[in-house]
Amino acid sequence: MQLSAAQPIWSLSVQEAWAAVQSRPEGLSQAEASQRLERYGANRLPPQKRRPLLLRLTDQLLHFMALLLWVAGTLAFVAGAPQLGWAIWAVILINGAFSFWQEFKAERTLEALAGNLPPRVRVWRDGRLQERSADQLVCGDRVALEEGDQVPADCRVVEAHQLYLDLSVLTGEALPVARDAEPHGSEGLPARERTNLLLAGCTVASGRGEGLVYATASETEFGQVAHLSASTARSTSTLEAQIQRIVHTITLIAVGTGVFTFTLSVLVERMAPLESLLYAVGSSSAWCPRACCLW
C-alpha cells in the first residue's frame, strides 16, 4: 500500500504515521481491513516455482558427461566385463545423488525463510485486541508484540517498552538491537538500521511493544530477500565455464584414446573385436571418472 505522505514512514512522528497509512490508534475496523485485504492481497509470501523432484534428479543423471558414462558402461557389458560396467554406472549414480541432495538442501533453505513468519498475531480491530491469522494483516493494522514473538509484517514502532529485536535472519548479527518510537531524519541508512522499524521475519528478543503495519507480503524487506533468492536466474560462473572446458577436453581425450586403442588392437595386434572393445572401454573409462567428478 502506498503511503499518503511525501516522507518515508521512519521519518514521521507516530501521529503522522497513523495519517500516512490512513489508520488510527484504535486500529482498523473489520470492514476496512477486509477491503484492503481484497485490494492488496494476503500477507503471505508467493509460492516458489519448483521443478518436480523427478525432473531435477533426471538432470543430474543425463548431463553430457553422464551420458558418455552410460554409453561406456553399456559397452563394458557388451564386451563381457560386467564388473567394469557396474563400476562405471555406480560413478554416475553416486555423483548424481550427491548433486541432487545439494540442490535439494538449498531449496529447503529457501522454504525455511517462510517459516520465520508467524501463523497467528495479536492485532487491534474495531478497538479491541484480537488474535488473527497473520495472513489477514493489512497496511494500517496495529499489532501487539512481546518477547519471543515473530514480526509478521514490516511495522513502524508506535509503542516500545524495553523493546529489543533479533535481526539475525536479515543481517546475521547475533546481538539484539533496541527499538523505539522516535522519528529518525538521517538519510542513507537501510531499513534494518532504522531503530523505529520492526521488520517481518525478525524476532522480539525482549520487552514488548506495538507496531503499525506499513508493508505486507512481498513488499516487506523479508519478502524482497525471499523473492531475490527464489527468482534470481542462475548463470554459469567463470569457474564452472572453465571446468566445462576441461571436462570436454578430457572427454575428447577419452574418446580418442578408446578409438585409437580399438583400432590398434584390431589392426596391429589382431585381437578379436570384443576383446579389443573391452580394452578400448577400459582405456576410455580411466579418464571418465575424473571428468565426472569435475562436472
Results as ranks from 00 to 15, higher is better:
E182S: 06
A72L: 10
T171A: 01
P118N: 10
A76E: 09
R120V: 04
G148S: 10
P152Q: 01
W101D: 01
G148R: 05
V169H: 00
G140V: 07
G85F: 05
P152R: 01
D154A: 07
F100Y: 14
L84K: 05
G185K: 03
V169I: 15
V151M: 07
P183F: 07
D135G: 02
L117F: 04
A134M: 06
A178P: 15
L129K: 14
A178N: 05
I88G: 03
V78C: 08
L163Q: 10
V71E: 01
L62E: 02
S168V: 03
I92E: 01
Y164I: 02
R108H: 08
V143A: 07
D126H: 12
P183R: 09
L129A: 14
Y164T: 14
F77S: 12
A114Y: 06
E111G: 13
R120P: 00
L75T: 11
R120W: 09
E182G: 06
G185T: 10
Q136R: 13
W70A: 07
G172P: 03
M65N: 09
R132Q: 13
L93K: 02
W124D: 07
L163N: 08
R179A: 11
L167P: 01
P82R: 12
P190Q: 03
E103W: 05
L75K: 03
P176M: 08
E159Y: 11
Q136K: 10
V71W: 06
S99F: 00
V158Y: 11
P82D: 13
D180P: 07
L145E: 08
R128E: 14
A134H: 02
Q150P: 00
I92Y: 06
N116E: 09
R122Y: 11
L175H: 01
Q162P: 00
N95Q: 08
G140C: 12
V158H: 11
P118G: 13
E103I: 06
R142G: 08
V121S: 14
L93E: 06
L68A: 09
L110Y: 08
L68F: 13
G96K: 04
V91I: 15
S186L: 08
V169W: 00
E147Y: 02
H184N: 09
Q102G: 04
H184W: 09
